[in-house]
Design a protein around this nucleic acid. Structure first.
Lengths: 155, 155
DNA sequence: CCACCTGCTAGGCATCATGCCCAGCAAATG
DNA sequence: CATTTGCTGGGCATGATGCCTAGCAGGTGG
C-alpha cells in the first residue's frame, strides 16, 4: 500500500512518457525489466494505478465551458438525484459533500448559452431544491497527481 | 475537431481496455490497422486525446479524504495565490470561477485531522480572505468522459 | 545458527506488435 | 475531368512482450 521511491519514479516516468514500454522504462530507471514488470503489476493490483485510459479534453470535443454546480437535495431523494445525474452526459463528475450544498458536480457545455440548457436539465428534477453554479474561467492547476506521488514516495 | 463514429468507438475501446494495441484495436473495430493509427494520431494532435498517463488513485496512496475548498481572494492577489497553491501537493486541481468564491480547488488529505493541516497550509497565505470547505463523502459519479464522447460522436 | 522467503538481477526464447513502406481504390473537391 | 484525401491490404525489419530459469542478497522465524 505504501509506495517507495522506485514506485514513485516509475509513476512519474509513465506520466511524462505514457507510451513508453516496460523495457524502455527499466532502462531509464536503471533496474531490471522483471522488476519494473513486478512493480507495475503490484501498483495495478494495489489499485494505486487504476489504469491507462485516454485523457480526453472536453474542450477539444466541442465542450469548452466548465462549471461546478452545488446542489441542495430534498431529504430522501439522494438516490433518485444520483441516478438522474448519471444519465446526463455533461455531468462529468458528482460528489456528495458535507456543508451547505449536498452535492457538487462538474459540468461541461458547448457555450455559456448551452450551459443554461445543461443546468436546466440537471436541476429539472424533483429532488433538487436549489442549485448554485460557478463557471470556470481559468484552470491554473489542471488535475495533477505527480506532486502527491512524490510526497507519498518520500520525495 | 469534430469527432465521428469511428473516433468515438476507438476512444471507448481504449477507455475500456487501455493496454490494447493498435493492431488489436483495428481487429475489434473491423478496420485496417493504418486507419486506426491515423485516427489515433489525429486525435492526439487535435488535442482530443491528451495522453495516456496512469490514473493514480489518491486513496491508494494514503490520501483517502477529498474536499473542495472555495476561496475568496483579495483583489490583485490572484497570481500570488495561484503560485502558492501550485506548491501544495495536496492541491490536485485549481480553478478560478465566477460566483461568490473566486477560486475552487480540490484537496486530498490523509485523514480528516490531516485535512485541517492541509487547509491551514492552503489558507495560510496573505491573499486569501476566506475559505469554505466541503468534504466529499461519496463519489456516485467518478470522473468520466465516455457519455460525452458518445454524444459528441453522434451516439 | 540455519532454513526459508521475498525481491532484484540477468539472461534466453518464441511470439507478437510496431513503425514504415507500398499500391490500389473510392468518394469528395475544385 | 483531375486532384486530393482517407481507407484498405499487404510486406518487412526491428523491437517489445510474456514467460521462463537461475543466482544472489536481505530479512524473518524456527
Amino acid at each position: 500500500m505504501a509506495i517507495d521511491h522506485l514506485d514513485g519514479a516509475l509513476i512519474e516516468l509513465l506520466a511524462r512518457e505514457p507510451r513508453i514500454g516496460v523495457l524502455e522504462a527499466s532502462r531509464r530507471l536503471g533496474v531490471a525489466r522483471g522488476t519494473v514488470q513486478a512493480r507495475l503489476d503490484r501498483l495495478q493490483s494495489n489499485g494505486v494505478i487504476r489504469g491507462f485510459g485516454p485523457e480526453v479534453d472536453p474542450a477539444a470535443l466541442g465542450y469548452p465551458v466548465t462549471a461546478f454546480a452545488t446542489l441542495e437535495i430534498k431529504q430522501g431523494q439522494g438516490g433518485d438525484v444520483r441516478a438522474h445525474l448519471a444519465t446526463v452526459p455533461e455531468v462529468l463528475e458528482l460528489h456528495t459533500t458535507t456543508g451547505h450544498g449536498d452535492m457538487l458536480c462538474r459540468l461541461v457545455a458547448r457555450s455559456n448559452a448551452d450551459l443554461q440548457r445543461v443546468i436546466d436539465r440537471v436541476v429539472g428534477f424533483d429532488g433538487i431544491v436549489r442549485a448554485s453554479t460557478a463557471i470556470v474561467m481559468e484552470n491554473p492547476v489542471p488535475l495533477r497527481i505527480i506532486p502527491l506521488v512524490k510526497q507519498a514516495s518520500g520525495d
